[in-house]
Design a protein around this nucleic acid. Sequence first.
DNA 1: CTAGGGTTAG
Length: 661
Amino acid sequence: MLSLSISSPPPAIAGGNGEPAAYDFHPSPSISLSCCRRNGYPLLLAVPKTSEGTPTSSYSFRNSSRRSAISERKAAIEQVKESTNLEATLPRVEGLLRAEDLNVILRYFGESRRWIEVSQLFDWMQKNKVLNLTSYSTFIKYMRISRNPVKALQVYDSITDKSTRVHLSICNSLLGCMAQNGRFASSVKLFSKMKDDGLSPDVVTYSALLSGCCKEEDGYSKAVQLVQELENSGLQKDAVIYGSLIAICASNNLCEQAEEYFNQMKELCAPNIFHYSSLLNAYSANGDYAKAEKLVVDMKSTGIEPNKVVLTTLLKVYARGGLFEKSHNLLTELQALGYAEDEMPYCLLMDNLAKAGKIEEAREVFEKLKENKVKSDGYAYSIMISAFCRARMLQESMQLAKSCEVNYEKFDLVMQNTLLRAYCIAGDMDSVMKMLKKMDELKLSPNWNTFHILIKYFCREKLFHLAYRTLEDMHNKGHKLNEELCLSLISQLAKAGFPSESFSVYNMLRFSNRNVNKSIHETVLNILVGAGLLKDAYVIMKDNMELISKSSLNKFATSFMKLGNINLINDVIKAFYRGGRTIDSEIFQMAISRFIEKPKKKDLLLHLLKWMESHGYVVDSTSRNLLLKNSHIFGQKKLLAEMLSKQHVNSRILRGLQVEV
DNA sequence: CTAGGGTTAG
């Protein structure tokens, strides 16, 4: 329904007879708005209001040239860009702006890092179905930069149109988003799904994947594999691939390989600023400032002026190399150039000062950062909190952590971990629990570091069961367990009277870590024997006999003969034999008397005696007498007597042989 | 339609 206002010419909708039909109306949602686009007024700048004063979607109609339609759209774009209230502004452009116009705005918000607006605008585009392929890839790209892979995935999953979902550039952007946000495994999964869906990966696909290798453990070998695959599929390394490779080498401290790729690439094309800055970063690993300075000179000679990243990386080289005077000077230079407006260079200097033990100097840089009102995402805080923790300045770290919590609402996982550690080290249980609750609310899933911090803390607070449960959680979430931590938990759980949990930690550790320290088996064996968990002890002993000392084995065997499951006694003895261990006659003696106490187990006893006979073991005289005295329980006195006498002969033969040798 | 990939911080 149209509700007319202002003037009232006949509602001859635009295009009718070329008459200017200037009136406003409130479109009902069912009316297609595409017919309302042509319009010469700089709409939206002054939105006419209805008599009620509500600023709703209002359009003026007018026949006009194409050129004015374009300028109208341009004006609308500008207005949305400048809007401080997208929710109110967007409905006014409904039907006027096309997907490509909205993409322009999306990029504008993205490039100015206004993530809230990016999301608001995109949500609106989705809701109103004014979007195209580019909208998706652009949005996903900004989710990559703003480190929001979850949102990117949500959006991707919401795509119903198959030709959009299975599209190389969409998939490539999602791949890059996952890879660069620490979800390398997911990106590899997506990669193989793409191939299954019939897409042919191109260089962009590979460089997106490579970008994830930088922060990945063992990233270099993964990168080499990917490049191999790229070349096998007939593609060639381009400048971007080389750039990624050099960056990966740099972050894996492979300075020489970085140089090699750099030189290799020079044959192909002239290095650009990305290649230079990545190679420079490779030099930062060793703080090789001489090479770094030479590289910057080379770069300048090819006509490339160092940018913010290059100079910041050079600062990193100096700071890593412990050249703090040069670092300070460069920071001043960066400030003068307007390159120190974010916290990065301060962070580099602070962190390295603190790690070099110059905590007070680090604190001064931090103060300077605050004085200069440098915008911080919290990294600077994180660095200082960690630095104070490291220096055991617990008061300072706590104070900073608290003020950090007040000043920053949005934390990422590293920040959470930093605060958590500060609270844990200071022993502030209240804050620890609050932090955990907050992490839960923010749906931040703990990483390896989080678990590690908590387990150590719970141990220290003697909350062993909590420590155990946390470790279990960590294991179930697929994190590799740290041996040292497990070992300490194993012994602490045992001391606190939780041997089963101790054993369970041992099993989790073995599951997650193939090459555990060899002495751990004996440690756990002794714990289990001490606690009387002999069946579990038997499993350990059987699997690791060659790694366990004679005295521990004997302690185990003695306990088992006395208290272990009677049905397993023969198995234990045989396991000793198979493991090449000597079996003392006391062990046999204990086994035999154990069986005699349980006449129902006479078959096991007979089995043992036969086994001893065939393996050259003698029944000692005490056992012999005991057996003869209780021979009635066997019902077959004769059989027993025969067996014992035969054995006696055998053993004499055996002894005779030994003497001859 | 121009799209999707690489550099610096904890």
